[in-house]
Nucleic acid binder design. Sequence first.
DNA 1: TCTGAAAACACCGCTCA
DNA 2: TGAGCGGTGTTTTCAGA
Lengths: 160, 160
Amino acid sequence: MPDSVVLDPVDLEILRLLQNDARTTYRDLAAAVGVAPSTCLDRVARLRRSGVILGHALRMDPAKLGRPLEALLSVQVRPHRRELIGPFVERVRALPESRALFHLTGPDDYLVHVAVAGTADLQRLVLDEFTSRREVARVETRLIFQQWTCGPMLPPAATA
Amino acid sequence: MPDSVVLDPVDLEILRLLQNDARTTYRDLAAAVGVAPSTCLDRVARLRRSGVILGHALRMDPAKLGRPLEALLSVQVRPHRRELIGPFVERVRALPESRALFHLTGPDDYLVHVAVAGTADLQRLVLDEFTSRREVARVETRLIFQQWTCGPMLPPAATA
DNA sequence: TCTGAAAACACCGCTCA
DNA sequence: TGAGCGGTGTTTTCAGA
């Protein structure tokens, strides 16, 4: 499987439309793009096989699920060795509060995006799940005032 | 619309299953949860109306789209006033490289998650779109080695 | 919330350029 | 090789109870 995939304008338009609503029917997709529904089906199947489309995810509102407060935790893991960071990553991923986890360059090794019920819950999370761990050298907490998802993420220099 | 929504075990199970694969049919959903397909349809429609489900998104591989390098940019906007940050946010959201944008507490006002073709593209992005702007006081760039999405994000203390 | 029926859809073969 | 067409099984969706 090649690292990058060749996408023609039809593929790009399909991806753009599916990003707005991933449940768009192939019939509507076909009408919008200007090809036959079966061609759309074929294109989407190919995009899935080639790994461009990883899957279909549900976008949910954390606040509506009782987690109105979101934060980013910058975490320094010391010493930064495989035998420590492997379990650390798995533990963080298993937390119900975790939304995303990044391994980064720079002084802070990890960034954890969490959603919690409130400041008390956040404090508990930081103290019990992070700073209490021996391998966690430092945690810096920043609250998220507002967030935006951007997009559509399409290839640089799109073939128009 | 209330800030938080009351979810029964059926709702939670539906959300859990749809998060793994948002294209699961109502028939399969019904079989897994133990209710009729029409009930599933009704529940999902209600979850959509109540705002718990925001939509169905396509998960795509940035690398396959010619953007194999991802980074987080910490941006300080000075002075941090509405008439400056409004346009700043809109400009960043409109960049094809932007994946997500956060307004944060702490010394750095914004965090921008970007996907680019390579280090040269990243340098161009930082210089031309950020540091060249008068309102941008400082940009700190950290590369993303690896990232994980976590989940399922469900209510704290789930009603069992 | 379920049952059942009707409409819409996905998805497979095939044919044609 | 890739696009388009039609048939079939499945899924969705809407009554009514």
